[in-house]
Amino acid sequence: MRELTYVEATLEALDSAMARDPSIFVVGEGIGERGGNFNTTVGLYDKYGPERLCDTPISERGFVGMCAGAAMTGTRPVVDFMFLDFILDAFGELVNQIAKMQYMSSGRLKMPILLRGAIGIGHSAATHHSGSYYPIFAHIPGFRVVVPAIPSDAKGLFATALQSDDPVLFLEHKSLLFNRGDVPEGDYAIPFGQARMAREGSDCTVVAIGSMVDKSVAVCDKLAEDGISAEVIDPRTIAPLDMATILESVSKTGRLLIVDETFQPCGVGAEIAAQVIDEGFDDLDAPIRRLNGAHVPTPYSPPLELAIVPETNDIEQSIRNLLAE
């Protein structure tokens, strides 16, 4: 199978969908001729022109609200935020309008809008270019929240997002964008709400999100040399969340660690832990543990930045501690 980068994989899905569906258009800063700050739209401007690859002013609330109106009137907007942090200027449009429109209209309006942006900590991007924020969106009824970890998933989930009539947040960790991986040719779609078994094991379950998936798999491969058999589950979508796969794994292993770069309080790990306690309490042989990035704004200086992100040695130690409980 041929290899593509994560970004090339989503670009392939976007190009294919735009060729089929003339109602799809992309807005964002520098996504036209420039092809996107992260190469998310390279080559599309020449194919589809300025109305479908629409460069915007720095006007996030404006173009997000505008795309809400477009999605209500027969087109399918893709909002490319570059850095997801910029979405916060449009938070009211997202929560009060986009997430609620189908409900308020009793399902007579659809909201086919795809909102994508780069998330995560790295490269001294500092605190206005390092946010993830997906737990906030997963908290709100009405959003689909997608956090792919590998190129083939990025392509298949992007294709699903482009067919969805619900608003989708498609969040791409910056450290993954130029990772290469096997990606099938042709069109395919991966349904939302189906986790991926990233590594099978029997001693403990590790639920890892986004950039933490490959790191966790690498750690578990190393731990196998010591006879430790850890299972790694990549939920792929935070909303909907595939709890069935997680519960099934915990029923097998009895131990659960959730590894997530973003904040712990009121986070995805807290939600998963609560649901496992509700539905799988008797399967647990140890307390559920969480490993998260520090609950602080993202600092700039490299040693400070490194200190807030879960690294492979943190993941390894957390798994060893969990197995010792």
Binding site: S23, F25, E51, R52, R61, G62, V64, G65, M66, C67, A68, G69, A70, A71, M72, T73, G74, T75, P77, E93, Q97
Partner: peptide, 14 residues
């Protein structure tokens, strides 16, 4: 105001 702008965008595109 923004949503009416977006309807305008749809109608122009379509």
């Amino acid at each position: 105001i923004l949503q009416a702008t977006g309807a305008g965008y749809s109608f122009k595109l379509l």
